[in-house]
Amino acid sequence: MDMNEFLSKELIILDLKATSKADAIQKLCERLYAEDCITDVDKFVADVYEREAEGETGIGQGIAIPHGKSENVLKTSLAIGRTETIDWEGEEHQEVTIIILFAVRLVDNTSVHLKLLSQVASKLAHDESLEMLKTAKNAEDIINIFVD
């Protein structure tokens, strides 16, 4: 699977000014909308929270991977934000600095979504990839973590 298909510099915010989980999700959804990946910010935010209700998306190591599968998605994409530490609400109240928001078209609901999730998870399993995510100086460096 070619990760370049789902990543773009415009969807990576290295200085995301988010004060909470809700703020981070909102801002990343606004970026997805600005880049013509979704049709409606509020509806897609609701879709993301519908998925959040099924299970926590904080995966440890300061990373969260919220996602929404939705008719509001025009182009399956990843929006990535790096922020100061925020509390990723949930039972464990994890501290998060990297948010990788999956926006998935309904037609990509199964195979593409699972392959994308698997590919991202395999990169996040490596300490060097995690460190690069936390220290990258530009969007191209972030993209290279996932396409390398």
Rank of each mutant, 00 (worst) to 15 (best):
L106C: 10
F146C: 09
E91H: 06
T57Y: 00
L78Q: 03
D15H: 13
C29Q: 01
L78G: 02
G68Y: 01
E92C: 04
I59E: 04
H93T: 12
C37S: 03
C37I: 00
G90L: 07
C29E: 01
H93S: 15
E89V: 08
S122A: 14
I86P: 00
I100D: 06
N4L: 09
D148H: 09
L130G: 10
D23Y: 11
E52N: 03
I13H: 11
D2R: 09
L28T: 13
L130C: 14
D36G: 09
I25W: 09
D2Y: 02
L101Y: 01
S111M: 10
G90I: 09
G81T: 06
D15T: 09
E84I: 06
I25M: 11
Q94H: 14
Y49L: 07
T57L: 00
T57C: 02
D23N: 15
E91M: 12
D23F: 09
T76S: 11
K123H: 15
L116N: 08
M3H: 00
A79S: 11
L101N: 04
E89N: 07
I142S: 08
G90M: 10
D15Q: 15
T57D: 00
E91T: 09
Q119N: 10
S77L: 03
K21M: 07
D127L: 12
G60C: 05
K137A: 14
R51T: 03
Y49H: 07
M1S: 01
L133R: 14
L117F: 14
E89P: 01
S70Y: 06
L101V: 05
E30D: 15
S8Y: 07
F6D: 01
F102S: 09
I38W: 01
G62C: 08
G55I: 09
K27C: 08
K43R: 13
N4S: 05
N138W: 06
P66V: 03
E92F: 12
S77W: 01
K17Y: 10
L28G: 10
V120A: 08
D42R: 13
S77E: 02
M132A: 15
K9N: 15
A139K: 13
T110H: 05
K21V: 07
D36L: 08
M3F: 03
K9C: 09
I100S: 06
V48K: 04
D141Q: 15
E128L: 14
Q94G: 11
D141V: 13
T85W: 00
H67D: 03
H113E: 05
T39A: 13
E131D: 15
A34P: 10
K69H: 02
E91S: 13
D148G: 12
F6E: 01
L78H: 02
I143E: 05
R82L: 10
A64Q: 09
E89G: 05
D2Q: 10
L14R: 12
K17H: 15
G55V: 05
G62M: 07
V107F: 03
I142C: 06
A53K: 15
L11A: 12
A22L: 12
S77N: 04
F44T: 05
S20E: 11
F6M: 01
R82A: 04
K137V: 12
A139M: 08
L14I: 08
K123E: 11
R82S: 11
L114A: 12
Q61E: 13
S8V: 08
K69R: 14
E50T: 11
G81S: 08
G60S: 06
V45K: 12
